[in-house]
Amino acid sequence: MRTVLILSLAAVVLAACEREDRDYRSNPVTAETNEKIALVPLSAGPGGPTEQRSGLGKDYEENAYHISQGQRLYTWFNCNGCHANGGGDSGPALMDDRWIYGGQIENIVQTIREGRPNGMPSFRGKIPDDQIWQIAAYIRSMGRNVPKPAAPSRKDDMSPGPAEQRRPPGEVIDGGQIPPSAQMPQ
């Protein structure tokens, strides 16, 4: 009876571990995931753009470990220097619902890796691929576009506002802002 109890407890404990199953070895800097995504909802011909998402994004943005790693890396790679704690600065806000270059995690990964024309630098070769996914997962948590239990709670530093976990679930509106260069006369 006692053995059964221990075994069943162990099974429960081990099952709990399953949620946090992850690779401990990072991809080399040069390795790149290759998601096939579109920047726009419009395509030539009916049916919308052709996209192939591998599902890797879900593994990152539904995982508290990846999101919290992303939170740390967000500061380490100076993302906060331009985007503050999500409210924005020289770079646009990341906690709101407007996504110039798409707000799905695959779009954000691409934005970090490739840069964007109006000031976003390219981090290709500077941040290992899995860490770019972690940062993107954290950015998804800023507008609470990740499950509540996976989103970070209050951080140790000066509180800039309610923690990601306490924010109401967000939505994503793609292409919400005209970049300034598009307003350029002549």
Partner: peptide, 20 residues
């Protein structure tokens, strides 16, 4: 005035280096 010209989000008190 970056909060207006840059469409910053006032829910983050540290936006624009705390000016927001």
């Amino acid at each position: 005035g970056a909060i207006v010209s840059g469409d910053l989000d006032p829910r983050d008190s540290s936006a624009a280096k705390g000016f927001v």
